[in-house]
Each structure stands twice: as structure tokens, then as C-alpha cells.
């Protein structure tokens, strides 16, 4: 058998059969076991349309198989744009956007957070927004007759501290 074929064979012996229960116990992940892989979600997904990295049916299937390491360590659960198209259409009411949140929550508990999200949190702490407010932004606002804004960093920091988002997540 060629090496390529070898890689396509999934060895289930190391999988975690309780991973599905772990997700089902997480708010939003309750309905994961209902999925019967019709793929209505993926076929209508705007993210899956532009990148094959994100495929909700495949993620659910991997989670049901117990591929804990692969699911948590990959960034695909973070790619969901939460547009709720699949939520509306899923015939089994799996509630996929909420399921993705559940998977992210399990990943965060394990300390697995993609670098982009860490950077976003750092930006929030630094500027109170996802971007820095400079003279340019306020000039543009003035053109449209909008009042200038200031960075309200302290409030956002307090909020972040309050909900437990750490300095270095």
C-alpha cells in the first residue's frame, strides 16, 4: 500500500469515545449526537464556499468519532462566521454555530487559542477597540458630522478583567 493511502486510513484506537459527551455537556453542544451527516450545513455554508479548511459536517463527524486532539488543536472551529444559515436549515436541529462555540470553549479550557484571537484580545486591552483611534479617524468622523471619539481603554480593561480574560490568554 502506498504511503498516500496509508495516511488516509484513520486509526480509531487512540480516539476518545467520550469526546462527544464532553461537547454535549457544554452549553450549545447538547445536540451533537443528532447529526446524520446530510451535509445541508456545509453545502450552504458561506465560509466553506471560500475555504475547504472549514467544513462543519466534517468537524462534527470528527468529534463524533472521538478525534479530540485533531478537533481541538485545529483552528477550524474558530472559522465559523456565526451567520446562522446552517442553524436555520439543519433538519436535526444540531445548532451548529452554538456547537462551534461549545468546541471553542473546550479548546480554551485546554489553553488552545489561535494566535489571531490572542492578538485581538491584546488589541482590545491596548486600545479598548480592535483598532487604534488616531487623528485620521476623527477627521473622517468630522467630515460626516460625527463627534470625535476617544479610546476608553480603562472601561474595557475592567470589563475584560471582570469576565476573566487574562492579560496573556
Amino acid at each position: 500500500m502506498s504511503k498516500e493511502n496509508d495516511e488516509q486510513i484513520i486509526d480509531v484506537s487512540g480516539f476518545d469515545p467520550h469526546f462527544r459527551d464532553e461537547i454535549a455537556a457544554e452549553p450549545g453542544g447538547e445536540h451533537i449526537r443528532r447529526c446524520y451527516s446530510c451535509s445541508t450545513c456545509t453545502a450552504g455554508c458561506p465560509v466553506a464556499g471560500v475555504t475547504d479548511k472549514y467544513n462543519p459536517r466534517r468537524i462534527i463527524h470528527m468529534a463524533l468519532l472521538g478525534m479530540r486532539e485533531q478537533v481541538l488543536n485545529s483552528d477550524f472551529a474558530w472559522l465559523c462566521s456565526v451567520c446562522y444559515t446552517c442553524y436555520e436549515r439543519c433538519p436535526q436541529d444540531v445548532r451548529i454555530p452554538e456547537l462551534m462555540t461549545a468546541i471553542r470553549n473546550v479548546a480554551v479550557r485546554e489553553g488552545i487559542i489561535p494566535a489571531t484571537f490572542k492578538l485581538q484580545v491584546a488589541k482590545l486591552r491596548e486600545h479598548g477597540r480592535l483598532y487604534e483611534i488616531e487623528a485620521f479617524e476623527n477627521e473622517r468622523r468630522a467630515d460626516y458630522g460625527l463627534p470625535p471619539i476617544e479610546e476608553e481603554t480603562e472601561e474595557v480593561r475592567t470589563l475584560l478583567d471582570h469576565v476573566g480574560v487574562k492579560e496573556e490568554p
Binding site: S37, C38, S39, T40, C41, T42, A43, G44, C45, A48, G49, N55, R57, R89
Partner: peptide
């Protein structure tokens, strides 16, 4: 094996365009 997620009409050709994941 896979249900379509989106069905769109192409008015120019009269075709019906389907997006589906072959599972």
C-alpha cells in the same frame, strides 16, 4: 450522498445551479 445547501437560478442560461458536499 449529500443534500444541496443552496439552489440558484442562472437567468441567462436557464440552468439551475446547485451547491452540494459529496460526503
Amino acid at each position: 450522498r449529500g443534500l444541496p445547501g443552496e439552489v440558484v437560478a442562472d437567468d441567462a442560461t436557464g440552468n439551475i445551479h446547485l451547491y452540494v458536499e459529496n460526503t
